[in-house]
Amino acid sequence: MSMDVQNYRRYGLVIKKILKLKNSICSIFDIRIGDGRGTLFWHDPWFENKPLISRDEFRGLKIRRDCAAATVHNIHNGLWVSVITRVLEGKRAIGHLNGLNICNMADVYLWKAEENGKIKSSAIWNVIRERGQIVSWASLVWSLKIIPRHRFILWLAFRGRLSTRDRILAYMDIPDANCVLSSGFAESIDHLLGGCFFALGLFGIFLLYSWEL
């Protein structure tokens, strides 16, 4: 395997993730248009914090290469306006552009995540992180009263990802899938956390000890 192929496989996923975050990052800064020369009309989120090129309304519109590379300054001076206004969303963008105070100052990018002149990493993280469905057991698993190792094990258990013997048997031949603590029962997550007599006995001891404390 050549080095070029290896590098492509190594960095391909990283590049895809960066491109996926592009539209999310747009929501953490504002563009203040000055002369419009430093802002791309199609690709920068100068209008409603979303690039025009990514909007569904423009998918059927044939955009020439020179038009696709146009700046806000170019469009404000009348270039390709007749093409852009063929789409209703384009008319809205041009109307917004005509209402801006175009001046001789350079365009400015302002971070929304700033506080007292400093960028808040927590605000940026909340924008770029992938959000999943909120589950009822989240507060239990990620409680500060539980040590990190036990949090991780609980997280795997609630997601059905613990490497119990019944799961291992699905992709590997093992001599026995029964629980080693109570024979006759298949080792599964439900069994270990609810049906295993040995595990239930341990839980009872821990509960009694914690109650005495």
Results as ranks from 00 to 15, higher is better:
residue 38 G to N: 15
residue 19 L to M: 10
residue 106 A to H: 03
residue 124 I to N: 06
residue 74 N to C: 08
residue 33 I to R: 00
residue 78 G to K: 03
residue 49 N to Y: 14
residue 72 V to A: 06
residue 129 R to P: 00
residue 55 R to K: 15
residue 63 I to H: 01
residue 138 A to R: 05
residue 36 G to T: 04
residue 19 L to N: 14
residue 98 N to Q: 10
residue 129 R to A: 13
residue 100 L to T: 06
residue 57 E to K: 05
residue 45 P to K: 07
residue 124 I to S: 06
residue 122 S to K: 09
residue 101 N to V: 11
residue 53 I to K: 03
residue 101 N to Q: 10
residue 65 R to D: 12
residue 74 N to G: 03
residue 65 R to L: 14
residue 132 G to R: 12
residue 25 I to V: 14
residue 57 E to D: 14
residue 33 I to W: 01
residue 113 A to I: 06
residue 60 G to I: 07
residue 110 L to V: 15
residue 104 N to E: 12
residue 52 L to G: 03
residue 104 N to G: 04
residue 134 I to S: 07
residue 34 G to C: 06
residue 124 I to G: 05
residue 60 G to L: 14
residue 48 E to S: 12
residue 34 G to K: 01
residue 79 L to K: 11
residue 74 N to D: 15
residue 58 F to S: 04
residue 54 S to N: 07
residue 86 R to S: 15
residue 18 I to G: 01
residue 50 K to N: 11
residue 82 S to V: 10
residue 31 I to Q: 00
residue 95 G to M: 13
residue 125 W to H: 08
residue 49 N to K: 04
residue 59 R to F: 15
residue 128 I to K: 03
residue 108 V to N: 00
residue 108 V to E: 08
residue 126 N to Q: 14
residue 36 G to F: 08
residue 64 R to T: 13
residue 17 K to R: 14
residue 94 I to Q: 04
residue 107 D to R: 07
residue 89 E to G: 02
residue 101 N to T: 12
residue 101 N to R: 05
residue 100 L to Q: 09
residue 127 V to N: 04
residue 19 L to Y: 01
residue 66 D to Q: 15
residue 97 L to C: 08
residue 25 I to N: 04
residue 142 W to Q: 01
residue 98 N to H: 12
residue 63 I to P: 00
residue 81 V to H: 02
residue 23 N to I: 09
residue 48 E to I: 11
residue 94 I to A: 08
residue 118 K to D: 11
residue 41 F to S: 10
residue 116 N to Q: 10
residue 52 L to A: 13
residue 103 C to E: 00
residue 103 C to L: 05
residue 38 G to Q: 13
residue 127 V to T: 11
residue 121 S to T: 08
residue 16 K to W: 07
residue 21 L to F: 11
residue 94 I to H: 01
residue 66 D to Y: 14
